[in-house]
């Protein structure tokens, strides 16, 4: 039961490994970015589920009910920042892929590495 009760962490680990596997195994530059996104998203889920308390309400202060149990809002706010960071990383990565496509004519990592190795610099 204990293992099933922690299912949110299993989802986190599963997503993390899926993303990481894509990152390592794929050679296509866009697919690598997708893997990176899944990898980062797993961390978002980790943070968000961490703040949840069983029976907790949204963290909104209602008059006359100071004794309410509420979920911790701080991890949610932190992860908003991390999402922004993730989006900007993806944007920069995609911009780089566009420029790589223009300069090399391909977005396959193997072919690009082969072209890189042809000319000594």
């Amino acid at each position: 039961m204990r293992i099933l009760g922690l299912y949110n962490y299993w989802i986190f680990i599963f997503l993390m490994m899926v993303g990481f596997y894509i990152l390592i195994s794929r050679r296509n530059l866009v697919k690598k970015i997708l893997g990176l996104n899944i990898f980062q998203t797993s961390v978002f889920i980790f943070y968000i589920s961490m703040g949840k308390i069983t029976g907790g309400t949204p963290p909104i202060l209602v008059e006359g009910s100071e004794e309410v149990i509420y979920s911790n809002p701080l991890p949610h706010v932190l992860i908003l920042t991390a999402i922004v960071v993730g989006v900007s990383t993806t944007a920069v990565a995609l911009a780089l892929v566009v420029r790589i496509k223009e300069a090399y004519g391909t977005i396959e990592g193997d072919e690009i590495s082969a072209m890189d190795n042809q000319i000594p610099f």
Partner: peptide, 27 residues
């Protein structure tokens, strides 16, 4: 050089993995 683009891309992937590991640790 055009290889700067590929180098930057590789750095981006590695750097983001590193940063994500750091966020997991902080969490």
């Amino acid at each position: 050089d055009r290889r700067a683009l590929h180098a930057a891309y590789k750095y981006l992937i590695m750097g983001s993995i590193g940063a994500t590991f750091i966020v997991i640790g902080i969490g």
